[in-house]
Nucleic acid binder design. Structure first.
Lengths: 253, 253
DNA sequence: ACAAAAGTGTTATGTGTACACCCATGA
DNA sequence: TCATGGGTGTACACATAACACTTTTGT
């Protein structure tokens, strides 16, 4: 019941000629990443979730959009491989990076079998500008991506679910923002990701009571009205839970 | 900060001769599984957490205890590979199986580099008897395992953390029990895993209010006192959340 | 002065926890 | 009838949610 049938992720899928070769070849191993950032909506201007995709320049799925990714090199760890590949393909260097899931279904890639270890990442608006060429790397609204190569659509859906889920119990919203932010900005992050309005008064209490967030003595000037105080994320309390484990995430049901 | 430096898991690590060969060889891919079951403590007789380990019969770490695991075959999905390998090495066929994490550190295995996709599983007491030979497969108390091969100690620690964490918000305790069980038995599962006593009264309300658990018209006879009612786990409500995602787990911090 | 967002107070409702108590059965 | 675990009731602490209200700024 809770078991699950994965699908197929590739990247650098060097097609192996025939069926017999496929039977014998060891499964390929690739690293891919789903990157999230908040950017203003084209219509409302309010912040919404976006993610960068790269256009495939070879078969299979040539011309279609796919997650950035590539093979795992011999001298890099899994997160190192994810970071390095992100920089190569999109020019992005996310501060937050976490393993999402390993996808290893039999027919994810048409030619050689590929197992993909997928990461997910959050980037701040400043670092979210794509230095790469506009042709083959482009931002898409996270809830509107479609026709992705391989099983990347399901991977994106899962990453989205994980982001929303984790947002509700962990302190990750800060990674979408710069060092200093107002509580209204932080609330907009939650509203954009969870896609529902939040009560400003209750949100304030909730977040100021939480650990790891400190008021600064600075205020955001230049607004139309009363300047709001700027806050900083100082991380969990210095002597917080010394986790012994790799990952840190909940799962439902 | 939330990024994490994995370690090393192998299985079937066919040592590749020299450093140069290691540099060039593609990373190996293995599947391992942490299996949990509840068995009576040797001392108190109360249920406690146990897990089966297999003794390594070749280098590296020859003679030491390790997680059951093996290579991924070309014609099986990841969970299929985990199940098949479990049956081969331990004779166990867990009903609950879920992906835990992918461990891919550079030096997990001394010779060839190995990336391990690790699953975790829960088995019921009936199916927890080891048909295999006693020599090379044995049950250990989960909180007392030590001197494991490779990075398997950290993997076990992480799986333990995940089990305890997930136990607090998901309906997985049932997988330790048979079809019919009393609320006291279910409570003992929670107490054993979380290692703290629970209020019977509040536990009863909590669990009977939850969906997916139904009282039967049967009672457990043969006890010393009033026979308790037997309950059944019917799974989440038939038309429950149609998850689109592979895995289902939360993470802290 | 007025509009609008920042920020505070108050109350209703729900949920977790501690614990007193009754119920049903075997011995 | 008595001991014991099964099972129910209840009161308190605390978190969440809804919303009225005051404060501070720019225009």
């Amino acid at each position: 019941m809770d078991q699950w049938q994965p699908l197929t992720v590739p990247v650098q899928a060097n097609p192996v000629g025939n069926v017999e070769e496929r039977r014998l070849a060891a499964p390929g191993l690739a690293i891919s990443t789903v990157i999230f950032a908040l950017k203003p909506s084209e219509t409302s201007g309010r912040p919404t979730l976006w993610l960068p995709l790269v256009r495939r320049i070879r078969e299979p799925f040539k011309g279609q959009w796919a997650l950035p990714g590539g093979p795992l090199r011999h001298d890099e760890s899994l997160p190192e491989a994810a970071s390095r590949n992100l920089l190569d393909t999109t020019g992005l260097a996310p501060r937050y990076l976490e393993q999402l899931y390993a996808f290893g279904g039999l027919h994810r890639s048409p030619a050689q079998r590929v197992v993909s270890i997928v990461y997910w990442a959050l980037v701040q608006p400043e670092e979210a500008e794509l230095p790469g060429e506009e042709e083959n790397v482009r931002w898409f609204r996270a809830d509107k991506v479609t026709d992705l190569a391989f099983d990347h659509q399901e991977i994106v859906d899962y990453a989205l679910w994980r982001l929303r889920n984790k947002m509700e119990y962990a302190s990750i919203a800060f990674h979408f923002l710069g060092e200093y932010f107002t509580l209204a900005q932080l609330r907009e992050v939650y509203e954009a990701v969870l896609d529902k309005p939040l009560d400003p008064a209750n949100f304030r209490r909730h977040v100021t009571n939480a650990v790891g967030i400190e008021p600064s003595d600075r205020y955001l000037q230049g607004g139309k009205h009363r300047p709001p105080r700027l806050y900083r994320y100082t991380g969990p309390a210095p002597s917080s839970t010394p986790r012994t484990a790799p990952n840190t995430a909940r799962n439902p049901s």
